[in-house]
Design a protein around this nucleic acid. Structure first.
Lengths: 160, 160
DNA sequence: CCCGACCTTGACGTAAAGGGAAGCATGTGC
DNA sequence: GCACATGCTTCCCTTTACGTCAAGGTCGGG
């Protein structure tokens, strides 16, 4: 409850990107490690989901014995995954982008790729929006016709 | 064939409903029968799809030997199915409504039920539309942030 | 006689994202 | 010494709407 949106508008995403760019690779101090339950609660997903994401290669927490231990970086990746989902990317697509990121060579190139994907997504979403608007129109016309029919019928019934 | 409503605009749907209301039950003359291929071409669906719909109880063409023979009524049902799909109903929901129709007792009641479903669908579609708009906003903000980052990086690269 | 169109019934496969349950370990508090 | 919480793995199940063979029947033509 203590975070997420106090700076202005694009802060949430900014934070995501920022988190993602934090280079806390392997060798950071011990602070800020999370259990699977921690993350599950924080992001309101099930343990099953977190394990599933791991299985799909989206996150790789290390182990403390058997138990998973998530770093801030894992957490940031999870954030990206969830935001990707919100905007309609499939887990596979998300993995693709995360993997690109991890190649970590010409980051500029990777960012450009991501940017392209984002723009593609925007186009898709706009198309979907239009389809929904279409469907809404068709549906509204239909309800109009049907309630017309209905009134006729009821009127007819009254006349008989 | 006495079509009572031809007001221009909602004519397509009007036609659907009209077709559906045509009482060509079992005993109509022989004209206007269709093969599976006919309907497939006309509505641009695969044969597999038509068989699948039959399997699901959405259409029941009769048989001429083994081959399927579709009546105008089957065709009208198919039309309704496809329009239902366009506006986002699942095949199961569509079947539900078609079955109601076939109960053919108090048609008025059935029409009211359908009308309710339509309104529910409208609500759902509106919600989806909002979600898409949300996603679009999030995505646009993100692209903005990313392209900002990108410019910084490129500028940095030029300075170095 | 053979070809190509058109049709038939199975049966299995696919994608996406997990859900659910079995069966077992571990740690903690009382 | 036991319950409870938390976690682990493994495996199968679910939903939706078909696609994709496989393996063949039937009919009109050439």
């Amino acid at each position: 409850m203590s975070e997420s949106d106090e700076p202005a508008a694009e802060a949430q995403i900014g934070a995501v990107i920022a988190d993602k760019l934090e280079d806390d690779d392997g060798l950071h101090p011990r602070g800020s490690l999370f259990s699977i339950g921690d993350l599950a609660r924080e992001f309101d997903v099930t343990l099953r989901t977190l394990r599933f994401y791991e299985d799909k290669g989206l996150i790789n927490p290390r182990r403390e014995g058997l138990n998973r231990l998530y770093s801030r970086r894992d957490r940031a990746r999870l954030k990206l995954v969830l935001m990707g989902k919100r905007v309609g990317f499939s887990l596979t697509e998300i993995k693709g982008m995360l993997d690109l990121y991890d190649l970590r060579d010409g980051q500029v190139a990777q960012l450009k790729v991501a940017l392209d994907r984002f723009n593609d997504r925007i186009a898709i979403l706009e198309k979907q929006k239009k389809e929904i608007e279409q469907a809404l129109m068709e549906l509204r016309r239909t309800t109009a016709v049907v309630s017309g029919l209905l009134k006729e019928k009821e009127a007819g019934a009254r006349r008989s």
